[in-house]
Simulated assay, not measured.
Amino acid sequence: MTEDNKNIHQDEEQQITLIDDQGNEELYQVLFTFDSEDYGKSYVLLYPTSAEEDEEVDIQAFSFTSDDAGDASKGDLFPIEDDEEWEMVEEVLNTFLADDNMK
């Protein structure tokens, strides 16, 4: 993990509802958020609340602007469209998962 991406924040109380192209809603739990000085953005990683423990899940990632209290679930989400930005987010996620498995 690069030095500027070390501010990972876990808040297990935040949930976000995502709506797909067909209008279906699915509730997601915030896995963690972090800030990147390189890109000047905040990021949120989400997983479906319907996922069973030890089930492989599809983690969603977005850049976001939070509300005044810093709550990602009440701000705006934006897609990550740049390949280098995706690689940075994946690196942070992989480091987080490796650190979490060490506990």
Rank of each mutant, 00 (worst) to 15 (best):
Y47S: 02
N24T: 02
Q22H: 09
D20F: 01
D54P: 03
L97F: 14
A51N: 07
S50W: 10
Y39L: 15
D38E: 12
Y39Q: 14
L27A: 00
A51R: 02
L93W: 08
E85G: 07
A98F: 15
F34Q: 01
F64W: 14
A61T: 14
F78N: 15
E26R: 05
M88R: 08
E53T: 06
K41E: 15
N94V: 06
F96N: 02
V57S: 11
E81I: 11
K41V: 14
Y39W: 15
D4S: 11
M88A: 14
Q14C: 06
F34K: 01
E84P: 01
T95P: 06
I8C: 11
D4G: 10
T33W: 10
D71S: 03
D67K: 01
E56Y: 11
I8A: 10
S36T: 11
D20K: 03
D38P: 02
D58K: 09
F96D: 09
N7C: 07
S66H: 01
E85L: 13
N94M: 09
I8F: 08
Q60Y: 06
Q29G: 00
D83E: 08
N94P: 06
G70W: 02
A98Y: 15
F62G: 03
G40F: 04
Y28N: 01
D82I: 07
E13F: 05
D21M: 00
T49Q: 09
Y39H: 13
Y28D: 00
D83I: 02
K41R: 15
K6P: 05
A72H: 04
L93H: 04
A61P: 08
E53W: 12
K103H: 13
L31V: 04
E84W: 12
D54A: 08
V44L: 12
L46K: 02
E91K: 13
Q22S: 08
E84A: 09
I59T: 12
S50H: 04
N101I: 09
Q60K: 09
P79S: 06
L77C: 10
S42T: 15
E52Y: 06
